[in-house]
């Protein structure tokens, strides 16, 4: 029975990883951009949700919306500031700039939200569902359903619509796409705003499982890296599979080996893969 419970835990964890990693997958895969402030954006998304629920008194769904809008605006500001670096594809500088901005977000959030751990009330994280000896919460079901829906929607959007091909054209060659009358700057802005809103949504859904702190975000960012690289950079289906696989791996490793070293184990998995298949699992 323990194994069945661990499978449930793995799917629960994995859908969370996949949900948080979605924005990064799109940003990296579709627009070839990187964002090292991802962990801090996750933290901020969780705290904006918390603020909207406890201080403003909004219901949970509205608070999620507020977090997505606030983070979207922050994404718009960040990307506008970085636009010159983005257009010249200066990835090295871009990496460092996002790292610096993440540090600013961390300091700013500590000033605004204080240094104490908080919990998100009013969510479904305490609505337990028991089947025999197995259990999970309605929040877990919500995360899984939203994640599957989002991955499906994003896959359809990028692969099957005209806008999707426009974004992919910009990723291939921003200069060339501008010759065809595409405004690459708007596309980059849109993708970055999506990344920030998606991580806000992920944070609002996943963060209620545990107390939140303004210093958190590192664990989420590492898991996101592992998901994105394992899944094959930019592969949407690969990221979903990698997220769920990583969740199962983490659940079993935590249950049967050593819960304190799960991040280290996930990282070892990543290293092993990089040595065997540098381009990720999804490539042929």
């Amino acid at each position: 029975m323990n194994i069945a419970q661990q499978i449930i835990n793995g799917v629960v964890l994995g859908s969370g990883y996949a949900c948080i990693a979605l924005g990064w997958t799109i940003l990296l895969g579709v627009a070839r951009l990187v964002n090292f402030a991802h962990g801090q954006l996750y933290m901020l998304g969780a705290f904006v949700t918390w603020y909207a629920i406890t201080r403003v008194g909004l219901p949970y769904p509205l608070a999620i919306l507020v977090a997505m809008i606030v983070l979207g605006v922050i994404g718009l500001l960040m990307q506008s500031a970085m636009m010159r670096l983005v257009m010249t594809q200066n990835l090295t500088s871009l990496m460092i700039v996002t790292l610096g901005l993440g540090y600013v977000l961390q300091g700013g959030s500590a000033l605004v939200f204080g240094g104490n751990p908080q919990t998100l009330p009013g969510t479904l994280a305490r609505a337990k569902l028991e089947i025999g000896s197995l259990w999970f919460t309605w929040q877990d079901v919500l995360v899984l359903v939203v994640t599957l829906f989002l991955y499906g929607a994003v896959w359809l959007f990028t692969q099957r619509t005209r806008f999707g091909s426009v974004i992919r054209a910009v990723a291939e060659d921003p200069k060339l796409s501008e010759l065809f009358g595409i405004n690459a700057k708007v596309v980059y802005l849109g993708v970055f705003v999506f990344e920030c809103s998606a991580v806000a949504l992920g944070a609002a859904l996943v963060a209620p499982r545990s107390p939140i702190l303004t210093s958190m975000g590192f664990n989420e960012v590492i898991m996101t890296f592992v998901v994105v690289v394992l899944g094959g950079i930019g592969s949407i289906g690969g990221a979903l599979a990698a997220g769920l696989g990583l969740g199962l791996f983490t659940a079993f490793f935590g249950a049967f080996v050593a819960p304190a070293y799960t991040t280290a184990a996930a990282f070892a998995l990543l290293l092993a893969l990089l040595v065997i298949r540098p381009a990720g699992l999804a490539t042929k």
Binding site: I96, V97, G100, L101, Y103, V104, L105, Q106, G107, A110
Partner: peptide, 10 residues
């Protein structure tokens, strides 16, 4: 100080 350091970098 965090805000200063991160801002200088960016």
């Amino acid at each position: 100080n965090k805000i200063v350091l991160g801002s200088v970098l960016a």
